[in-house]
């Protein structure tokens, strides 16, 4: 069979690594897998798991304790402070009540199954023990703090005009917290970064995932000149 010519081979050699992952990707995915496997995300012998629909995710809201709701309100306040213009104070429903655009009900993200569970070790008895409630709340609060920290970085980069960095950090948030409490804010930040990069069609597509009444979406559309 005829081989490729030297120009084609050179082009392939130059461009073939463009979709390769980074070492950080490798570590992050492995960490997530360890959690999921430890939590029973992979059952040896299951028939055709690659083509089977994923199991329904544990509903997010019932897992969020009152302590986390408080932290969510605090988070909302923090983000409010970060935004250039004041948004309505998050005195209404906490962020967790919003449907998560990143993990719609008809295509659950399996990551969410493990992600809200801070302890991957399968010790349900211990988890039900009232003595473990405080560590769980602490872990969930830590997750929120991580979400806030990531989105703060993205917002700061955005406001400084570093759109690519904002996009990268928003993507990192999406990967770490696909069904995160701050998914709506993430989509808005990401859309604005895409607009700054001239990728308005992608921004529109992202913003279409938000509720029309979303204040974050409205603000992002306005800044993108999409209204």
């Amino acid at each position: 069979m005829k081989e490729l010519g030297p120009s084609a081979k050179q082009l392939i050699e130059s461009g073939k690594s463009s979709m390769d992952p980074t070492p950080a990707d490798e570590t992050r995915v492995l960490d997530a897998l360890r959690v999921r496997i430890a939590a029973g995300g992979s059952e040896p012998g299951q028939p055709g798991p690659a083509t089977s629909p994923p199991p329904a995710p544990a509903p997010l809201w019932p897992m969020i304790s009152a302590g986390v709701v408080g932290a969510g309100l605090l988070t909302g306040a923090l983000l409010w402070g970060l935004s250039e213009r004041p948004a309505p104070p998050p005195a209404g429903p906490p962020p967790a009540e919003r449907p998560s655009p990143a993990a719609p009900a008809d295509q659950p993200s399996k990551t969410d199954l493990a992600a809200p569970t801070p302890a991957p070790t399968p010790t349900p008895a211990a988890e039900n023990d009232s003595g473990s409630a405080a560590p769980q709340q602490k872990a969930r609060s830590n997750r929120l703090a991580e979400e806030v920290a990531l989105l703060s970085r993205a917002t700061t980069a955005l406001h400084a005009g570093r759109a690519e960095e904002a996009l990268r950090v928003a993507t990192e948030h999406q990967q770490k917290f696909p069904g995160g409490l701050l998914s709506e804010e993430r989509i808005a930040v990401r859309a604005q970064a895409l607009c700054m990069l001239g990728r308005t069609a992608e921004a529109k597509r992202d913003l279409a995932r938000l509720s029309p009444s979303s204040p974050q979406g409205a603000r992002a559309r306005q800044r993108c000149g999409l209204e």
Binding site: R36, I37, S42, P49, A50, T111
Partner: peptide
């Protein structure tokens, strides 16, 4: 990618 490796792990 996680889904793929979960299947690999199982099989």
């Amino acid at each position: 990618v996680q889904e793929v490796f979960l299947v690999i792990h199982a099989k």
